[in-house]
Every structure is written in C-alpha cells, then in structure tokens.
C-alpha cells in the first residue's frame, strides 16, 4: 500500500492444508535490500523455494553490481524469473513493495504466477482473501497517507479482510517502509 513518501506491506501468518491449520507462525514477507520487500502467497513449498531463489539471485546481483537492488529492478527480476517457468509455474502470486533509492518515491506492484506485472499507484492485494482485501482497501485507502495513518489503514484492511476468510488470519506482520527507517510490527489478530 502506498503512502506519502512511504509504503507498507503486510501479511497474515497462517499455514494450512485446505481447512486444517498446520502452523500459525509462517511469515510471507521477505526483505531483499534496505527498502525492497517481497510478499508471497500461494503454495507453501513454492513460497519457501521462491523466496530462497530470490535471496540467491539478489545476493549475486549485489556482488556483481556492488550496490543494492532497486525495487523496480527487483520487480523485473521477479517477472522474468517467473516467466522462465511459463509451462510449469511456481504457484505463487508475489507482491513487491519498496522505495526508489534515488527519488525516494514509493513503488508497488503485483504479479500473477507466470510473471505478468501489475503496476499500481494505490494498493496491491494477493492470496485467498483477495476479494475481501479489495473491498477493504478500496474503502479505507486514500492518497498521501503519512506513515502512522498508513499503518492504521493497512492493518485494519488486512485484519478485517482475513476475518471474513476462513483460510487466512492467525496474526499478521506489518512493515512500514520510510526513507531511512523500516518499522516491523506484529499484530496478534483473532486466533480462531
């Protein structure tokens, strides 16, 4: 979710097999630079495999280029890596959020499982609660939210969306990304 000179990204913590909850401590957001974040929903094994794959690719990029990867570059890396598996895809729907290292402008985008990028200037949603999240974000989000307002907006959107979805919830992680500060907050949420 985009704010004024800041972005936020949040995920729930549930890991389940259909209706059975296996774990309630399974974060889906991964950090790949000072202010580059990736959220992954979908098949749990692919969430782990894909996040590890990008850790490797970003580490190689950093060694080669001797600088951190920018969110827009990372988004294109995600896109091309997913399309490599066009006919046997990773079953994930990623979301990238970050701040451009040069301009400080917020950047967010989402992907389908084969890497088609969806750029947005407001918010991106993904996962089993997509419909609920669209509804919540559509009604709560407004342009130029400050970091604190953005935290409240994204948290309320996520918490209320997952409460209407039987397959997600069990707590949440929320990251607020500002120019030279990243704040990670843990939300307890409903545990039922």
């Amino acid at each position: 979710m985009v704010g004024k000179d800041c972005v936020a990204i949040a995920c729930d913590l549930r890991l389940g097999l259909q209706a059975l909850t296996v774990s309630n401590n399974f974060p889906k957001i991964f950090q790949y630079g000072d202010n580059v974040f990736l959220g992954l929903t979908g098949l749990a094994t692919d969430v782990a495999t894909v996040s590890d794959l990008f850790r490797y690719k970003v580490n190689m990029y950093r060694l080669r280029e001797e600088r951190q990867i920018a969110p827009r570059t990372f988004a294109n890396l995600v896109s091309s890596s997913l399309y490599e598996r066009r006919f046997g895809p990773w079953f994930v729907s990623p979301v990238v959020a970050g701040l451009d290292p040069k301009t400080g402008q917020p950047f967010i985008c989402g992907f389908d499982s084969i890497g088609c990028i969806d750029f947005a200037k407001d918010f991106i949603v993904s996962g089993t609660a997509t419909e609920q999240l669209f509804g919540m974000c559509e009604s709560l989000w407004e342009p130029n939210l400050g970091p604190d307002q953005l935290f409240e907006t994204i948290s309320q959107s996520l918490l209320n969306a997952v409460d209407r979805d039987a397959l997600s919830g069990w707590g949440a992680h929320v990251y607020i990304i500002e120019k030279d500060k990243v704040t990670k907050r843990l939300l307890k949420g409903r545990q039922d």
Binding site: L15, L17, L20, V22, S23, N25, L43, A44, T45, A48
Partner: peptide
C-alpha cells in the same frame, strides 16, 4: 519441524501427520 511431501516446512511446538492431525492437534 513439520515437513510434508510437498516440501512445506514449518517449525512448530507440536505436530502430527496424516489422520492423526484431525484427532490430536
């Protein structure tokens, strides 16, 4: 650690596999 055949990995305080999950968890 709980691992299934799809290679989903989860660190857990207690775990079960198969039908036992439905009774024991």
């Amino acid at each position: 650690y709980w691992l299934d055949y799809l290679a989903s990995l989860a660190p857990v305080p207690y775990a079960a596999h198969g039908y036992a999950q439905y009774y024991c968890l």
